[in-house]
Computed example of a mutant assay.
Amino acid sequence: MLTWALTITGALLLIPANILPVMTVIYLGAGEPSTIVGGTLELYQNGLWGIALIVFVASVAVPVMKLVGLVILCLIVQWRLDVAPRQAMRIYRVVNAIGRWSLLDLFMISILVALVDMGAIAEVAAGAGSTAFATVVVVTMFAVRAFDPRLIWDIYEEKMAAVDSKARDEERE
């Protein structure tokens, strides 16, 4: 139940994280706030496709994949889906491993804010979107920690016990 609550919270917070400005770069008095997707497109248009790819993966793809993985895991447990436990455990391990990579984007923003303080020449300020994004990262990390992967194996054992019981009943008949 806690995993569901945290996953839904993360999904809802992903909306303001992608709509609100993540940071504002002001260079020589000119600049405007940019969102995650807007910043990624701007990097790509300026020929920085490698950095744009990293930002896109860390800020868009990873959180979405993590939330989808958490929903799949929660549905497997709640609906007792007939899924091979090894496959479900792979999903769990991937979701657990990729979660930390979302922090890469926040790390980049914090370094930019700390390093680029040139007064009237250039200024970088973190926006409300970065706070929402940081909250998404933390909430989804808690969601993964709250999920108990043993539940996957419990479902498998229950199904195997039911199959064994059915086989024994058929033998008696």
Rank of each mutant, 00 (worst) to 15 (best):
A126G: 14
T131D: 01
V55G: 08
Y44H: 11
L115S: 12
I91E: 00
V60F: 14
I98M: 12
A122K: 09
V71E: 01
L41W: 12
L73P: 08
L73V: 02
L43K: 04
D105K: 00
S130G: 01
T9G: 15
I54H: 03
I26F: 01
L14G: 15
M23W: 01
D105G: 06
A125M: 12
R80C: 04
L6S: 07
R90E: 05
M108I: 14
V94C: 06
L70C: 00
A122P: 10
S110Q: 05
T35V: 03
I15G: 10
G29D: 00
G69L: 12
A58Q: 09
Y44W: 12
F107C: 14
A11L: 15
W79Q: 14
P21G: 03
M23F: 10
V22Q: 11
A132D: 07
P33Q: 02
N46Y: 03
V68E: 04
A132N: 09
L75V: 14
S59C: 08
G129V: 01
S110W: 13
L103N: 09
V22F: 10
L106E: 01
A132F: 14
D105S: 14
L75E: 06
Q78G: 02
D105E: 07
T24H: 00
V116Y: 07
T7N: 01
A132H: 12
D117L: 08
I36F: 07
I121S: 10
T131V: 15
R90Q: 13
Y44T: 02
L112V: 07
V68F: 11
K66C: 09
A125V: 15
A126C: 03
A88L: 02
V55P: 01
L103E: 08
F107D: 05
A88T: 00
S110I: 13
V60K: 03
G50L: 02
T35F: 02
G127H: 02
M89H: 15
V124T: 10
A61K: 05
A120R: 14
C74N: 14
P63N: 06
I26L: 09
T40N: 08
G47S: 06
L48M: 13
N18M: 09
A17F: 10
V137S: 11
A132S: 06
F133A: 07
R100F: 15
Q87E: 02
F133V: 06
V71D: 02
L70G: 08
R90I: 15
A17R: 08
V62K: 04
L75K: 05
A114G: 08
V68R: 12
V55C: 01
N18Q: 14
A88K: 04
L41V: 12
T9V: 12
R93H: 13
R100Q: 11
I76E: 01
